[in-house]
Design a protein around this nucleic acid. Structure first.
Lengths: 235, 235
DNA sequence: ACCTGAACACCGTTCAAGT
DNA sequence: ACCTGAACACCGTTCAAGT
């Protein structure tokens, strides 16, 4: 029993906290109550500890936010780069990567704006691709599949821009207060009858739950355009 | 002299502030020092007044942020809807609108994330189109130009998603700390030689100042795709 | 009518002190 | 080694009080 990785009744206090627990709790808190609910003091209280104890595991608030983004992005890194060669080449790779990042956005709609807006550490990192490993793999995969360097860079920019545009709107949709649907902005002087075209098209604009299919359609169209770039037959 | 819009030596104190001045100063402050610099107390100090005085002109911090977004978006509304018919139809309209919103992002890169992430007042508002007037005009223009309602709704979603993706990345680029370019994230254990593909392509990924042209190219390609939707010859 | 002082309930962060 | 109390410099917001 004695001589394990740590003696259990040592005079030194074993931590009641861990960095992983702090970060997981922060993510859970923001998922549940929104970004506004996250403060060091509130987070400490949630864990059952004073706020100052967190500073042993996290290098201040900014480091905490970065770590949350990293942890939320972790499944993307894990799942994206599996066996590119046999299972469909760049097309399957980009499809899977896109889906994975979409799941991140829908699983954590309150955190996705952080993924999009926090300053990336390196100059070539374009959100929502947040670290060098992901980008290295992304570019290497495209080069392997026969894209030129210039084409790969173009695909990188196009793909990130596509994901960001789609998923910011998806996340915003998911964090809307689920209040009564037919409300007006200021509830003030202006009335809906001033906007006849919007009223007339309101059913087309609300699109309940159509978001996932639209993402799939648009991603497929994007892959078609990329395929045309390298001279791949569309069908 | 007497009997003007207001007596000049009245016992009632004339305001030293105005709502417009408060909002303009807030925008100026965020442009200059970033969103983190904006607080009611700091803003008051910048104007030369105690923070509490601001509450007479602004209904709290949230209202201030909304008003900043509105003011920054104002040039877009003014310039977008001019004489659609004679000057090129929907294509010229969407081109001008896209450019106008891009200027908003490049003029106020620290404020654009606010435009993108603040909860829109109405359910059909998709950032960066932030108010019902803009959307009403957008849809009416497309219908006038022969788009079906379904097509107009599709174009609305596609266009907003395109702008958001492009301009979030443009704004992020412009708010980067202009530090030394070849830096590593944590400056820690990992070295750039672990990312050979990125190193090899670094010149292609940095693209200095190419952003505007790429936006123009991509917007044009988007308009081509929209044109194909309504059966317009591409060239 | 318009601004201010004082107050309340919060922040992030540091650091000496406790165990 | 790990957590806490006290402290500092900030927040947003309210409200009675001054002019």
């Amino acid at each position: 029993m004695a001589g394990e990785t740590g003696a259990q009744d040592d005079a030194a206090a074993r931590p009641v906290l861990s960095r992983a627990q702090v970060i997981r709790t922060a993510i859970w808190l923001v998922d549940a109550e929104g970004a506004g609910a996250l403060s060091m003091r509130r987070l400490g209280a949630e864990i059952g500890v004073e706020a100052m104890a967190l500073y042993r595991y996290v290098d201040g608030r900014e480091d905490l936010l970065d770590a949350m983004v990293d942890l939320v992005s972790a499944p993307v890194e894990d799942a994206a780069g599996k066996d590119v060669g046999e299972s469909g080449g760049w097309r399957a790779y980009l499809w899977r990567l896109g889906q994975q990042i979409r799941w991140m956005a829908t699983d954590h709609p309150h955190i996705f704006p952080l993924v999009a807006t926090r300053h990336p550490a390196a100059p070539w990192l374009r959100p929502p691709l947040r670290n060098l490993d992901m980008v290295e793999e992304f570019l290497r995969t495209l080069l392997q599949c026969g894209f030129s360097a210039g084409q790969a860079a173009l695909v990188y920019r196009t793909f990130t821009s596509f994901l960001l545009g789609h998923l910011m709107l998806t996340a915003a949709e998911l964090t809307k207060a689920t209040g009564p649907a037919g409300e007006l902005p200021g509830a003030s002087s202006r009335t809906l009858s001033e906007f006849p075209t919007i009223v007339q098209m309101s059913d087309l604009l609300s699109e309940p739950g159509r978001d996932a299919e639209e993402f799939d359609d648009d991603l497929e169209a994007l892959l078609d355009r990329i395929g045309a770039l390298v001279g791949e037959p569309t069908d």
